[in-house]
């Protein structure tokens, strides 16, 4: 489990776009570096990200080693009714982690 910070507005207006921000504590080891002994450090990144709202998709992203350590993602979402944002990401070991945040539509 990696640490995740999700920021969403407390309340949003129906049908109006709002911004979501996400930080994930992950080294995003690029596979391009060598350690002090000259050995290649194996690649270890989050390579896939999907965000859904209730059951509809918001966006999906393929991430490559050029994404900075402790990845930051920000994007816009629209909601017609209160519900749950679900963010799922997968790392190079196939570990799947899911985080959620609730959204209140007024």
């Amino acid at each position: 489990m990696v640490r995740v910070l999700i920021s969403v507005p407390k309340r949003v207006k129906r049908g109006e776009a709002f911004d979501v921000k996400l930080l994930i504590s992950h080294p995003m080891e690029s596979g391009q570096r060598r350690d002090a002994m000259g050995e290649a450090i194996p690649r270890d990144i989050i390579n896939s990200f999907v965000c859904t709202y209730n059951d509809d998709e918001v966006l999906r992203a393929d991430l490559f080693p050029a994404i900075a350590a402790n990845p930051f993602l920000s994007f816009a979402v629209t909601a017609e009714q209160s519900g749950t944002l679900t963010m799922t990401f997968i790392d190079d070991h196939g570990v799947v982690q899911t985080e959620t945040a609730s959204v209140t539509v007024e």
Binding site: L5, K21, L23, I24, S25
Partner: peptide, 14 residues
Amino acid sequence: DDDASNPGFLWVQQ
């Protein structure tokens, strides 16, 4: 300036 985009807050959270 923005706590929601400052990666230091991942450590603060811990």
